[in-house]
Design a protein around this nucleic acid. Structure first.
Lengths: 353, 353
DNA sequence: CTGTTAGCGCGTTCAT
DNA sequence: ATGAACGCGCTAACAG
């Protein structure tokens, strides 16, 4: 009977719907939110549904969360939303989330490890049911330790964690097969006759970089070669970094016939450097291969030969891992990659020297 | 004294922190979550903080939301997370959200109007404090009506709404100046001597398309010209659409000397069509200008002349509007754009015919 | 099948 | 400055 004193807005309550329908709140809950106590008679069900519609009832997730101590939100942590790499992953995540009636909270770290940790506790605060760690990739032991600590806290509270890419933490992870991708790229150049191959790498602290580099080294080794440190240049894992690193590499090794960039951004930068700074024709004088096959790869000039990563699928799988039962042991999945040959690579001109 | 019967995981409670510190829950709440009832003595404050640290207390957002009937999450609705356009907007949104301690829930509609509506109610269910509508842009009256209805419900519950781009609904909106951008693009071509200009447009239902088209028409009119329907081709607002539309246009008008694409994706498609399907040199035979200046624009071949949109800033402003007091009247902001001249445009060769 | 009722974790008057 | 107690909206036993 008492009139609510809330001045504004709290919205229609389940109780109000129940009253309006002349049933108990429990019954209303049962028809509107399923679960609790099985079925409800057809007549009552109808009345409740009508009442809900009439009152434009919208359930209150925070209240439900409190009552069941369980939300329907998952957190997604990325470095940079604008990066097509994460965009593709996020697409897969969103698709799967919707299919399972989950909402996703987005966290963008802007590549700041502290922010990553901060978001982790925020997601805990929000009682996110799970966290998808797609960012990270920092290898600093102190950081990884802290990260593991936070993650442990998260799982201790019943939350689930999955990593997209290996981040050195104890959690289910799904990742594109970086090593194999790098090996494919190297093999391609090798088969084209290239023997003086420069590698454009990102910061050594990134796990992704390490994996891809390992793949290159391995493929080289299998062919009786090795990666001369002078043929390797590390820089920002971006277009600018690629441009800079390419310049550096050719200053040291003017006779390089091919460039293998560890991501497409660096490859784009390398193409720009070759064209505008170095004046070398691609692929006539220098072949270039990238990594990722981001959407713009086909529009680069020349169209970039690169390693295609199943990014959306990776996001989907990560979500699926989270939905599965916890599983006793850590699961790791490595998704297949493929080489996409376009026009930025060609046979090595003539044996150098 | 009673031991919790929850079998698992609910985590540390404020009550537990209070007990551990030997204070009332109210006091614990005050020091840990501020507000209510002002200050707390230094000694008690210290004890509470210690207890919280010792127990690794993490506050429970859903519970807080219920108690204060107000969350700290905002919803962001986009069409496609992987689209650089939305990626840039999202970046601005995320940055601002973090600065204000807000979490953002992401909704990707995949360009499905129904999904947009669905997410709107989901965000209401979540009691999102506000919604940023960056997707949408559909002009179907029935849809806009429904959209307005849902939005009204949202604001009736005390939620705030802001649009990124005009979506025909009654809400604060901030948008890049599409009309002016289009006019700038047209003017640029005109000044280069182009008079036979083809326009590559997206679906007419999109507000963005309409605005940009209006800008083109206006600029043309100012110069005593007009847009011949035969010089206009509409297709998907994508690379594929651009490629197709460019082909169509040149079939109809083989003497076109310039192409104005209403977004960068279409421009990329047009460049591909010109190069691979039509065999026309850019910019020697045909000039091309795009719209958006997405990151890859500089890497297209030739580098794309285009209209730069302050997308991140737009996202930031939208968030700021939401944080401001509701404001009695609808606010609309139009953010300045600029033309970025690269190498895809050049003077018209010789006066045609 | 349906209703009653005790919390879920926390914010917030209202006393003290 | 501090504490007691009620209520936020809903779920989940438990009775009937």
């Amino acid at each position: 009977m008492a009139i609510s004193r809330r001045s504004a807005s709290t919205g229609v309550t389940l109780q109000q719907v129940a009253d309006h329908a002349g049933v108990s709140i429990a019954t209303a809950s049962r028809v509107l939110h399923g679960s609790s106590g099985r079925s409800v008679g057809a007549e009552l069900r109808r009345r409740v549904e009508e009442a809900a519609a009439a009152l434009a009832y919208v359930s209150n997730a925070p209240a439900q969360a409190l009552a069941r101590s369980r939300t329907s939100v998952v957190g997604l942590i990325v470095h940079d939303v604008a990066d097509p790499y994460f965009g593709a992953i996020a697409t897969g995540v969103m698709r799967t989330a919707r299919a399972h009636d989950l909402m996703v909270m987005l966290a963008a770290t802007f590549r700041d490890p502290r922010l990553e940790l901060e978001y982790l506790v925020r997601l805990r605060t929000q009682r996110a049911r799970a966290v998808l760690l797609a960012g990270s990739g920092f290898t600093d032991p102190a950081f990884v330790g802290e990260l593991g600590h936070h993650l442990a806290g998260f799982t201790a509270d019943g939350g689930r964690v999955a990593c997209v890419g290996d981040h050195g933490v104890e959690a289910d992870t799904v990742t594109p097969d970086n090593r194999r991708g790098a090996a494919l790229a190297l093999a391609h150049l090798w088969e084209l006759g290239h023997r003086r191959i420069g590698v454009l790498a990102g910061p050594d602290e990134l796990v992704t970089v390490r994996e891809r580099l390992a793949g290159v080294r391995e493929a080289l080794r299998e062919r009786g070669g090795r990666l001369d440190p002078a043929d390797l240049a590390a820089a920002d894992f971006t277009r600018a970094g690629g441009r800079q690193a390419a310049g550096e590499l050719f200053r040291r090794r003017p006779d390089l016939t091919a460039l293998l960039a560890l991501n497409d951004g660096m490859a784009a930068g390398a193409l720009a450097a070759l064209r505008e700074d170095l004046g070398r024709a691609v692929p006539a004088e220098v072949s270039v291969v990238g990594f990722g096959d981001l959407p713009y790869a086909q529009d680069l000039h020349p169209a970039l030969t690169t390693v295609r990563l199943p990014l959306e699928r990776t996001g989907e799988r990560a979500m699926e891992l989270i939905l599965d039962a916890p599983g006793a042991v850590r699961r790791t999945e490595s998704l297949p990659v493929e080489l996409v040959v376009r026009t930025s690579t060609a046979p090595a001109a003539a044996p150098t020297r």
